[in-house]
Design a binder for these strands. Structure first.
Lengths: 165, 165
DNA sequence: CTGACTGCAAACCCTTTGCAGACCG
DNA sequence: CGGTCTGCAAAGGGTTTGCAGTCAG
């Protein structure tokens, strides 16, 4: 379980406190611990993982508080999600190598091909993580349909998604 | 609801029949309809969507058959999943623009930065989908840890993931 | 003090599974 | 015909929500 730099973590906690205060949100013991946990992890943990870690120092926290806090932090823009918020598994009959255009508003996904993007120059540092088998590009934007029905700029909790192949 | 070219759909159905036959899997009415539905959609539908579409022509299919069939098709390599197989939502305190290295074996995700990758040349055709706000690269491979514990090459249903930001 | 927050438990949604009858080959 | 496959219904895992007591400010 590797950790982010202490200095960076402190910077983030500071930012959390300011942001929460500005938004009129109470800085509770639980929220502080939960945020610190996510902020100091490199693992992109899920709620359960955060819960287990926080529960060591705070045996009374509940999993649902962790969920509520994480989504609150997300809404404040202090953390992000990896993978679409709540979505079912989607299937694709195109089994050739391709990339995706994703609408961040409605979640529409369209395929496109690009030999250029199939062979991207991967930064040196990445090699330290492991072998490189393939690269996949996700282009994000607002699709035509959404641009027309110009949504009243609701915050898109839709946020982001992880997309192997 | 746009559709894939008829010719391409037929080609895929043909391939399904051959592959299934070769694998000793029965070609039932349900399976044919379910595969045809996924093969002719550009929407990357989820199980529920496939189910609703198929149910029109085949009112007795059940949702669980759709699930079973979709995973079977996935195991045969005839379709793929978009997004990690079944995973909980994961959170990330790094809110700056960055990319991901993903281990296709264990699901480990690591961040990395690259100005180069932040501004990729997006193919012309993509513009027809909508505006382009950002590009995100996901590099896939086998992480060091997995390479050591060299898994007995179990088929990774883990397959793929969609990875916004 | 007082409204925002928390813990609990029950509800929800998507997905999977056990079982007995139905059907492909 | 026999083993596979299907439909049903119920279970499962992750996540959310209603409620009453608790705590930050």
């Amino acid at each position: 379980m590797e950790k982010a730099e202490t200095r960076e973590v402190e910077r983030r906690v500071e930012r959390f406190i300011e942001t929460a205060r500005a938004a009129g949100i109470k800085i509770t013991h639980q929220r502080l611990e939960i945020f610190r946990e996510v902020a100091s992890s490199l693992e992109h943990p899920d709620a359960e993982t955060v819960y287990r870690a926080v529960a060591i120092r705070m045996p009374t926290v509940s999993l649902d508080t962790v969920y509520r806090t994480l989504w609150m932090l997300n809404d404040l823009g202090l953390i992000r999600t990896l993978g679409p918020r709540r979505e079912s598994v989607r299937f694709d009959a195109n089994t050739t190598s391709h990339h995706h255009y994703v609408c961040v508003r409605c979640g529409l996904v369209r395929d496109f091909e690009s030999d250029e993007l199939n062979t991207l120059p991967v930064p040196h540092g990445v090699r330290s993580f492991g072998t490189v088998v393939a690269t996949h590009v996700e282009v994000r934007g607002i699709c035509e349909s959404c641009a027309l029905h110009q949504s009243p700029s609701g915050q898109d909790r839709v946020a982001q998604s992880t997309d192997r192949e």
